[in-house]
């Protein structure tokens, strides 16, 4: 394991909580988090747990980031059309 990864992992170790929510709970709540963040609203205690889970779980974090990006594209009217997306697959 390389130094910067060990550094990151140690941060995750020390950020470990006694109780953490599961991936299923995270999936259930993550769209609500994306919504609150998109509206710049404060996230409550439950959403802090989602954020804590996202910091620990790459699989859930990747999904959260993609949903957040898609929501942003939709809001800006820039979600690519089906034709454009199909064309960009080589």
């Amino acid at each position: 394991m390389k130094g910067d990864r060990l550094d990151k992992w140690l941060k995750n170790i020390y950020a470990t909580q006694q109780e953490e929510i599961s991936c299923t709970e995270c999936f259930d709540l993550v769209s609500g988090l994306v919504e609150l963040e998109a509206r710049n609203e404060n996230v409550g205690a439950k959403m802090q747990q989602v954020k804590q889970h996202l910091a620990q779980c790459k699989a859930c974090r990747d999904e959260y980031e993609a949903v957040r990006d898609l929501r942003r594209l939709e809001d800006q009217g820039e979600f690519p059309s089906l034709d454009d997306l199909q064309d960009s697959i080589h």
């Binding site: 999936f27 769209s31 609500g32 994306v34 919504e35 999904e63 949903v67 898609l70 929501r71 939709e74």
Partner: peptide
Amino acid sequence: SKFTTWAYK
């Protein structure tokens, strides 16, 4: 959330 945001996930 918006329905579409929920559906994206």
